[in-house]
Structures are given as C-alpha cells and as structure tokens.
Design a protein around this nucleic acid. Sequence first.
DNA 1: TACTATCCGGAACAAGGTTCCGTTTTGTCA
DNA 2: TGACAAAACGGAACCTTGTTCCGGATAGTA
Lengths: 198, 198
Amino acid sequence: MPTEDPAGKPPARSLRADARRNQETLLAAAARVFVTSGVDAPIRQIAAEAGVGTGTIYRHFPTRADLVTAVYRHQIEACAQAGPSLLAESDSPFEALHRWIDLFVDFLVTKHGLADALQSDSDRFAALHTYFLDRLVPVCGDLLDAAVGAGAIRPGVQPYELMRGVGNLCIGRDSDPRYDPRRLIALLLQGLRPLPQA
Amino acid sequence: MPTEDPAGKPPARSLRADARRNQETLLAAAARVFVTSGVDAPIRQIAAEAGVGTGTIYRHFPTRADLVTAVYRHQIEACAQAGPSLLAESDSPFEALHRWIDLFVDFLVTKHGLADALQSDSDRFAALHTYFLDRLVPVCGDLLDAAVGAGAIRPGVQPYELMRGVGNLCIGRDSDPRYDPRRLIALLLQGLRPLPQA
DNA sequence: TACTATCCGGAACAAGGTTCCGTTTTGTCA
DNA sequence: TGACAAAACGGAACCTTGTTCCGGATAGTA
C-alpha cells in the first residue's frame, strides 16, 4: 500500500535514488530556512537553499504542513513520548503535567512562527494543526486524567482545549520582553487547581 | 495642528467634499466586507464594495491597520470607557475585571479574524496591535490594581501580558464547539487569585 | 546499450499588495 | 461666471508568493 499517512512522513524505501536524495536535501534546507525565516518562508527560498526547482518541493511535500511536520517529526514524537515518562518520574501528576506543557512550549517558542501556523486561519496549515493534535491530545489527556485522579486539578477540562489554549498563548512575535508565554501558562495551570473552599 | 494621531482616525474638517464622502463610503463598505470576509479581506474587494479605486483606499488609509481601527474605533472606545464604569458598579474589583475582560473577548470573537490580526507576525497589522494596547492596557491596569488592592488577585501580573494573553486565547477558527476561549480565560483569571495557603 | 517509468526544473498562471500617474473634481478668485 | 491650481480619483502596472504543468533529464532494467 503505497499511500502515506496524512502527515507526510518520509515515504519508505521505494523511491528512486535521486528522489530520496532530494528529499533529504529538502528537509535539511527547510530546517535551515525555518530557523532564519520562520515556517512561513517562501517556497522559492527553500527551493533555492536546496538547489532544486519549486516543482520538486511540491512533489515531495504537497502541502506546507507536510514539509513542516516532516522537519519537526522527531521533536513532536519526542514530546509525545515524554508524557508517560514524566508521569512516572515526577513527584506528582500535576508536576508531570506542568513539566510536559513546558516541554511543549519550549518546542513551540523555539520554532519561529510555528505556534502562529498551528492556529492559522488559512487552510494551508490545517494538516499541521490536525497532526499535532492527533499526536499530542491523547498524551495530554492521560496527564490530565492522572492529575484529576490525584485531586490536583478540577475535572472538566478537555485536553483539546488545554492544548489549544497553550498553543495560542505561544503565538506572536518572539522575544518580546514584556510577554513571556510561560508566565501566563503557569497561571492558567494554577487556574485548574481545585478551588480553596467548595 | 493638522497632524493626526498614529491610529488613523478620520481627519478633521479640512477635506474636500468628495474626499470626505469617499472616506465615509469606505468605512461603511469595509465594515460590511469585514463581517463576511474578515479583516483580511482583499483590498480590491473593499474597493469594489465601495465603488472606488484601490488608490483611494491607500490614500485614506495607508495601512490596513488604519482602516481596521477606523472601522472599530467606536467599539474600542466603548470598551475603554467601560472599565471605570464596571469598577464603580460591580460588587468587587475582581468581578469588574472579569466582566471587562468578557466585554473585550466579546468584541474580539465577533469580529472575524480580528484577534488573529492583533497578534499577526506581519507588520501589516503592527499599528493595530499598538493602538489596541495603547488604549486598553491602561484601563486594564486600573482594574488589575483595584483587584490587587482588594486582595482579590496576587500582585505581579502586568496588564500588557494579561491583555495579550486574553487576545491570544481568542485566536483561531470561529465557532469550534471544542474550544471556547471564555472557558480558558475564566481559568486564567482563576489562576490570578491568591494561593490558598502560604 | 536501449528503453521506460520516474523525477526534475522552472516557465507560466493566479491572486493579492502597493505604487504611480494621467484624468477628473473641487474650491477659489477674478 | 469662467478659469485655474490644488486635491483627489481610478485603475493599470508592477512585485511577491503560491501553485500547476510539461518538456527534458535520469535512474533502473533488460
């Protein structure tokens, strides 16, 4: 079955040699360009950096989201897998949740424009939104459940809305000294704790 | 002094008759288009709706932010002025803050794409960001100070970061049943309350 | 080596933002 | 009222970016 999963992961071993070579060149070039120009960088710029034509990019990564997820797949995966580990090694489920969210935030804020893209109105990134959520919402759900079970937070918060809220809080110009998303996210997590008196 | 404030408010009574006429036509047309196509609507579409050339739009509103602020000036103003009123009439400063934030959120979520534009990476909307904050941050600051003074929330939160956080939480596709910005904003405000012990 | 399926490059098209300038309108003054 | 200069208009033209398409190059195979 030659159809790939919707997130555009590198197709297996059936490509022609030049195709596979270009695919790797493209991933490396895109990673470099994303650092300097953000995930919104013009296709032509990425093509130039890789030394290929624009058609080649579209053939390998039909949508921009495919390219972005391919570039960051490893980190998304690492984030997903960190959930259970943190739950096991942290002193409390709440701490595990907090540390996991911090991990996610670190990932977002170090990738210029990634948080913006995640919530972008345009359909250009819809698949990116979907991929992130499909992969991370279940992990977040487990952490939330554990924290609720321990009585550390109130029930009723959905993982989807928490993830999306956290992602939203990371949006915007990087490195504005007046705005540190982590501060607000910490406040938001505080807001999840049980109310002092019934 | 004929210089205008940087937010592009309608210049005073010194325009030629046709210019003033066009300016009003444009504001009305833009308001209509924003409702259906969002504040990102193509300039040409607004020009067509108003029955003028694109040059005319740029002459009256050099940047898109100028047009947007001109269209929504009244509502921004109303929001700013609601701050002191709410403080006077609410049962507590915390309630006043909460109600004021709700007002702000209502404004943002009913204007398709406005919250997105506010935090947009591109410079296209930089002046919009500035205008909103210049006008509303002081109001928010007063409400915060009052709530801190009453012991209803912890000190240390800056009005800028709160406004921006709230704005950020409003970003995204409208009317996703899984995501209600108000829920998370309420949680965030809960997170501002003093910690139970210590 | 010859053949074909695959892949490549970049020209070409579409859409939107922005600028520019020849033309039209307005207001004023004789 | 007629003429004139300043102000404003309209939209063609240009630029950037996304996306498609196809003639030509190339890898794998017989």
